[in-house]
Design a protein around this nucleic acid. Sequence first.
RNA 1: GUGGGUGUAGCUCAGUUGGUUAGAGCUCCAGAUUGUGGAUCUGGCUGUCGCCGGUUCGAGUCCGGUCAUCCACCCCA
Length: 445
Amino acid sequence: MSDPVKLIEPRTLKGFRDYLPELMIPREWMLEQARRVYRSYGFAPIDTPALEYAEILLGKGGEESDKQIYRFRDSGDRDIALRFDLTIPFARFAAQYIGELGTPFKRYHMGPVWRGENIQRGRYREFWQCDFDTIGTTSNAADIEVSLVIHDLMRGLNLDRFVIHVNNRLVLNGLLEELGLAGHTAPLLRALDKLPKIGRDGVLAEMAANTGVAAAQADRLLALAQTSGSNQDILARLKSDFGTNPKAADGIRRLEELLAAATKAGIPDGMIVLDLSIARGLDYYTGTVYETFLTDMPKIGSVCSGGRYDNLAGLYTKQHLPGVGASLGLDRLLAALEELKLLKGTATPAPVFIVQFTAERIGDYQRMARVLRAAGIGAEVFPDAKKLGQQFQYAEKRGHKIALIAGPDDFAAGTWNVKDLAKREEKKGVPDAEVAAFVRSLLPV
RNA sequence: GUGGGUGUAGCUCAGUUGGUUAGAGCUCCAGAUUGUGGAUCUGGCUGUCGCCGGUUCGAGUCCGGUCAUCCACCCCA
């Protein structure tokens, strides 16, 4: 006996995941839906490299995101980094090609991004984003369209229990300006955001500690943020309190128009809500901001977020390239759907399973499989002539919908037995030429 | 990066004040059932008790470290 081979433990990096068929089938389906919805609005596909020069990516999203960027030296000693999101590479891309693309330009981009942060449920170090953006226009029509795309995207993914939260940085900035707090925007908004967790007094304490603002100012800010009620109620309150500030007025107008247009376009009431606490997002957002939460799992975080950035490509070109867009967090949403048990659990993309009753007839089984495939129906022939029970168990485990069975007697008669695996109902004696049509009638449209 | 919980078979877990050959259910495999799968019965496989070290006559059990995972902070998809 030789020494046992030292086995390498099979494992994946922290925060990186493998996808088995049960998860990859719905994941691919989600990508198809996102692609379909984006294309239906005229967004065109692009792709960019996973690796960029570090200088392209660093310093664009804020200090926190810089810390999370995977950065290396390649073998040519170049300072390179894995992309942190798809928006920054798009800014570089747009600056490079806008001359031939022309404006406005609408693109979608789906691919993996990497963030070296601590992992949590729905939070990974490698995950896919599905971005769509319109650049080259400041028109509010583009902002409005983003909310429609998010809605259609979620509906396209068979979800109806979600809420799109919108806000506008102009409103927040104008509001802080009006209060004379413009210099403390970031810490104030961060404190404000904790309202549900640490309460009114906690927020006031944090504001005082981090910014030294007067209690009266902080109080006024808090009072506004706590305004509850319908979108109309909040808009009215904003207008009366801060409508005289030019920035705030512009933001309020854009939000009001967005909400009205969305309703007019057919988005159901309650699916888009004005939420003044949606203040965060990356540093480059300047206008409308969006976050989408699942009603049944809000704690997993936003599954589709974005906003308007009026100067994104400014670091790479002197041409002014405003834009607005959002990003579907594919893997976070998948994790949520998995936990909510909304995934079907199919492990095969082929609905039809053909039993190998007898090895001598393998040619006939493969012929029928090809007939079905030609009819657009995926079909798989079992590789071994095992006992029928075992083959059925395999087919059931994999999630095949239909089984075809034919033995010597059936071949003599020129017929097949077609079995609905879920219902356990079998139609015997289906003529060879009619099998495809019959199978089609059993499958969902 | 900080704080806390958890790590025993493929999965979910039990394991009594540290004591000898570490268990259950489910799954899986085979058979009862050589033209038909969710039930039942019979038999069977599976563990460096996350890893490393320490205390001890003796550690799955106690201690330290480490890794992984979950939760909170932070940030975000």
